[in-house]
Design a protein around this nucleic acid. Sequence first.
RNA 1: GGGCGGCUAGCUCAGCUGGUUAGAGCGCUUGCUUCACACGCAAGAGGUCGGGGGUUCAAGUCCCUCGCCGCCCACCA
Length: 871
Amino acid sequence: MKEMPKAYESQNAEKRLYDFWMEKGYFRAEIDHNKEPFTIIMPPPNITGELHLGHALTATLEDIMTRYHRMLGDPTLWLPGEDHAGIAAQMVVERELAKEGLNRYKIGREAFTERMWQWADKYRKRITEQHMRLGVSCDWSRKQFTLNESPALAVRTTFKNLYDDGLIYRSKRISNWCPCCCTVLSDLEVDHKDLNGALYYIKYPIKGQEAFLTVATTRPETMLGDSGVAVNPHDSRFTAYVGQTVILPLVDREIPVVADEAVDVAFGTGAVKMTPAHDPVDFEVGTRHDLPLINILNQDATINENGGRFVGLSREKARQAVVEALKEEGYLVKIEEYTHAVGHCQRCATAVEPMASLQWFVNTKVLAKPAIEAVTSGKIKIIPEHFNKVYLNWMENIRDWCISRQLWWGHRIPVWYCDDCEETIVVIDVPAVCPKCGSCHLTQDPDVLDTWFSSGLWPHSTLGWPQQTEDLKYFYPTTVMETAYDILFFWVARMIMQGLYNTGQVPFKYVYLHGLIRDEKGEKMSKTKGNVLDPLKLVDQYGADALRFALLSGTSAGADSKMSPIKLEAGRNFANKIYNATRFVLGNIKTKAALDIDDSRLVLEDRWILSCLNTMIADANRLIADFNFSEAARVLHDFIWGQFCDWYVEMSKTRLGADNSPLNVLCHVLDKSLRLLHPFMPFVTEELWQTLKETLAPGDLKEESIMISSYPQADNRYIDAVAEKNVGMVIEIIRSIRNAKAERGLPPKELVNVQIYAGVGAVALSAYEEIVKRLARCEQVCFVAQNTRVDKADELHIVIAGAEIFIPMGNLVDKKAEAAKKDKERTELTILIDGLKNRLSNEVFCSKAPAAVIAKEKERLADFEDRLSRL
RNA sequence: GGGCGGCUAGCUCAGCUGGUUAGAGCGCUUGCUUCACACGCAAGAGGUCGGGGGUUCAAGUCCCUCGCCGCCCACCA
């Protein structure tokens, strides 16, 4: 056996092992038409920067599923890629440019796009390297990028199909304008924040009368663009004014008073100023009443020439100036404090301005219908389930999706406008002349598409759609979409709509949503707070396996979790524990050992550990299949540490001193444990498995690598209730003796003599004298066949389930204290016994409870009564 | 204004379709250089499962209600 250091050194193993896997090509998915594939398309990280812990969690969860299914023998595809991240990436590069005193307009579209590609190439490479450090086993040969030709073709094809079906249209309407990013945003890209503002009451004089209509507004500067005043048609206060004209203060424009149901009688004054170019409700009312759209803002949200004397002012300055002017001229009635929600750009936090402009939209109502059905029918299952409601609620109230962006980085809208006829969608080649009339006055739409338009196609565009490739035919629909819950609407919902539209099939069968990773205190990680943990630094410090284990522990689907050094240490310690257990086993193998276990030669503790192992194997498989990964990891941890290392390995030492009889079982359990754990902690398990393989007899572990070995399945032949009960009793006995010594301040080294009566098991348990001697530090241990002993004055008398223990302790035994202890025990037992007796004598319980429950309760009662009688 | 989630040991969290004396890690106390591991070993202490009500033979687990904490969605100027 080769020399193994005392502690596991992750940094000496990980790179070597990853290179080995890569070299062997294990990650590549092969099509096998005789088998059902397992497919995960990786959520493509944005090329905006480094990977964070959220990505590491995604990588961990998806790698667990991938490695698990690969070991089950399923043709397994995990397809990686990156997202060009339109607005987010463009902003990052624009910030870089700003540092050089440049901006995108100065260098022009072509040069800017060139810069973007440089950035993309750099970060795509870096993201891949980072993923590799985490041990991901994805199929790099199929890696995609949203701007690659194939996904780009998918984007243009989808656009054309939707356009031809009348589901994409161009329209002038109110959308969210970010004056900082200089583009429109979809509703989802706007965050609403409650701000303390004011409600301004303004008098609008009625033409030809002394009377006024008072309106209330939170954005007084927009009055410059007013083209009407609306009241509710049922509001008797204003019936007389409907159809009349008011004169807009400061501007002197004559605007009509209209009646519209949209006006809430109870709010403000009941009369509302109408600014159709800068408010969505006003836009609709304006459309119904033919009110003109008067845009008063430039792209940077300064007042344009329609703002008269306020031209050139920023919107903030304009507000002050307008209010000042209104006050001076006597139109301002009052100002009330008022808190209201203001939309902010998700990217730059600038307040968004609702503005009317000509944009491209997707009619999502039509697409939503099958997307709703897919979830309600169960074709797509969302985990955790409660997100169904969130999803359905959003889908059922969906609004049209604005997909054009005034950006340069992304999929250019494939629409060409001809000066001489009409617009054309071009999917394949850049046209020289108008495909419809041959005119050469042809210009392409300058805008690009919302990033999510291309991300929404990801599950099928990565597999080759619109081409009917072998990959698409075989791996689509994919199996699981695993991602964070915060992009349920942005991404998951769009993938479902677009996937169904393009392929007629759901894009995936399961959606697994994970939560956000917060810092130790539960706060969101952010660069400004400086509490961001770099996954790679953690890998350096603790090892990738430890990081993966830490990311998993204490999490459940859909719930946020916290990362802390304590969790990372726990992960590292666990890796080290398995490492040392392996070191122990291998250290005891003198020559090449065999792995096969000979059932006929198993002793009780062998049968016990094999029973525990197989119970755990069943649990682990079930938990992984149920997407309960953290529980699965916990179950593995508890078995390996708490049963195998703490008890079986310790018990085996006694036998190893005499012969090699436990070696096969040790190797067997170790092999199974490593395989079971491999999807969770791929590096350390591979490292140890390889070492185990070298030490075992040739052919015992046939596969080249643990990652292509088979995942253990429970073998019910090894479930052994008798062994579990008897070894359980031995463990109880050892604990009781240790405890007896510890409680009385006896040094562990001090040896005691023990006599044990263990009911009918005493004879069989006599084989455990050596083990008890070793583990409980006893001079002599004697199992007596009959309960003939009566405790003496200098003896401790301990009663446990099915056994009694006698330990002579001389003057360390305080008879009074012992009696008090026993009294307490008697009281506790009596309470339990009374409770059980009550229950068992209850006829309703006996008639309604399942037989197994009744039997169990009877058994417990018998045990408690037995213990009480012996006390 | 709607909706969702959480509230279990000092801390962080498990507890699946209701069925043992409610678990783990960390922390804490006590003791250990035990021939795999101090990234360790052993022994302990610690919980009326947020409050109240209900369903049931049986409730941390199901229902109602209240209370905090967090999140999401929403065009009331």
